[in-house]
Simulated assay, not measured.
Amino acid sequence: MIPWTLIDSAKLPGQGELRLKRRGSEFSIMLGTNELMNSRLSGSEEALATLACATLREAPQPQVLIGGLGMGFTLRAALEVLGPGARVELAELVPEVVAWAKGPMAEVFAGCLDDPRVSVTVTDVGAAIAAAPARYDAILLDVDNGPEGLTIPANDGLYSDAGLHVARQALRPGGVLAVWSQGPDRRFTQRLRQAGFSVEEKMVRAHKGRSGARHVIWLAARR
């Protein structure tokens, strides 16, 4: 079996370290012993985008914010759904992740960062949300393994009552907040409803096929 090779690492604000590893054509991003993402598992990340952007296909100039660059699966899927007038803002907190996308993982990203509809900013997605009242038709969050601050403890604020209120204010009427999670969280569903969202909870496959692990995507529409 081909061994894993460490390509690079990146310090996270506050604590922790991301590690980019490669085995043949396969990539993995690790946080400690947790694998945050793998280039062979893209099904649920793509579903995050296709479900959230489904109603925006015919919109003339939809504005979409994606929190977390990852391996680009969510971004690529969003671009496939959205029309030529769309604008997709990508907020990534860790500059090394952007460098990995343009360097060792360029094949995985397949040029999506060069799409003229895309702008990438190295920033906290929470700050991007707070700075843009009534700006977005969709906000997609894939910055943790669920509605808690795994990668960055401060991300807890994104999923709190106050954080959800700010996200709701950043959406246009009918806009959608979509959140990826490794598993269900009943209390988070309740918080979304209490914050003024109409909520759907979707179970999707980590793989594109019909077997394997299931992940959760919340689709929360601003009422």
Rank of each mutant, 00 (worst) to 15 (best):
R193H: 05
V179E: 09
G175L: 03
G157C: 14
R205E: 01
W180V: 10
R191W: 01
V176C: 13
G157A: 15
L51C: 09
I29N: 06
A99Q: 13
A195C: 05
S160A: 15
L20H: 11
G212W: 01
R19H: 12
F197Y: 11
D124W: 03
G68I: 00
G175S: 08
V94D: 07
A52W: 03
S160H: 14
A54L: 11
A101I: 08
G16E: 04
Q169C: 10
A47S: 13
L69E: 04
A78P: 11
A195K: 04
A49E: 10
K11C: 01
P84A: 12
A130I: 06
G183Q: 12
R168N: 13
W4M: 04
V199A: 09
D8A: 13
V122M: 07
R40N: 12
A106H: 05
C53N: 11
E46T: 09
A167W: 06
M37H: 08
N34G: 02
G14E: 08
W218E: 02
R57V: 14
M1P: 09
V166A: 15
A213R: 09
P13S: 09
L31E: 08
L18C: 11
R23A: 14
V166P: 06
A54E: 15
P133F: 05
Y136S: 03
T123G: 02
A154R: 15
T33M: 10
A47Q: 13
T50M: 06
R223V: 05
T55M: 09
